Simulated assay, not measured.
Amino acid sequence: MKQRALQRLSDTAGWADEADIHTWIDNGNAEQGILTAGLPFLSIMDVLAYADPKPDVLKIGMVYPLRIGVFRSGTIYMPR
């Protein structure tokens, strides 16, 4: 039973690598960024309506299993 659960988790992780489930909002600010998931994304977007300069935002579509490759890709890099 544990073997089957681990296999399903591995399959899901593989799917998450290939699926387009993350949302990247590029506000042209390569120095600052926000990582968020779920409902807090809406609150952040409300607050950012009044922010200047606006940071880039990455909304994680699936938080478990979290795929580190999303953060290591060349297009998603935020030093702060």
Rank of each mutant, 00 (worst) to 15 (best):
R4K: 14
A49W: 05
Q3F: 13
M62C: 13
D56H: 01
F71I: 15
D52T: 00
L9T: 15
K59V: 13
P79T: 00
G69M: 04
F41I: 00
H22R: 04
T36M: 09
I25T: 15
G61Y: 07
L39N: 01
Q32K: 15
P53H: 14
D56N: 15
P40F: 04
P79W: 05
A30F: 06
N29Q: 03
G61V: 03
I44K: 01
I25L: 15
F41Q: 00
I25M: 06
K54R: 05
G14V: 01
W24E: 02
D26R: 04
L9Q: 14
G69S: 05
I44D: 01
K59W: 04
S10R: 13
K54Y: 08
P55L: 00
Y64P: 01
G38D: 03
P53Y: 10
A13Q: 14
V57D: 00
D17F: 06
D11E: 14
D46H: 07
N29G: 11
R67P: 02
P65W: 02
I60W: 04
N27R: 13
R72L: 11
I25E: 11
Y50L: 02
T12I: 00
S73V: 05
K54P: 11
V70H: 09
A30L: 11
G74F: 10
F41E: 02
T23S: 14
S73L: 10
G69I: 07
L35I: 14
L48W: 12
R80A: 14
Y50C: 01
G28D: 12
P53A: 03
L35K: 06
H22G: 07
H22K: 07
L66A: 07
I68H: 11
S43I: 11
V63C: 08
R80I: 06
P53E: 08
G33E: 05
L6T: 04
A49I: 06
R67L: 04
T23Y: 13
D20V: 07
D11R: 05
A30S: 15
A49G: 04
G69E: 14
V70D: 09
L66D: 02
W15L: 14
G14R: 10
I21H: 15
D11M: 01
G14C: 05
L35T: 02
L39A: 06
L42I: 02
L9W: 13
D56P: 05
Q3T: 13
R4G: 03
L66H: 09
I21M: 11
A13N: 07
L9R: 14
A13V: 08
W15A: 09
P65L: 12
T75H: 15
G14Y: 00
G33K: 10
K2D: 07
A13E: 12
R8F: 14
A37D: 08
D56W: 04
G33R: 08
I68Y: 09
I60C: 07
V47G: 10
E31M: 05
L58A: 08
R67C: 00
G28M: 14
A30M: 07
I44N: 05
M1P: 13
M1C: 03
T75F: 11
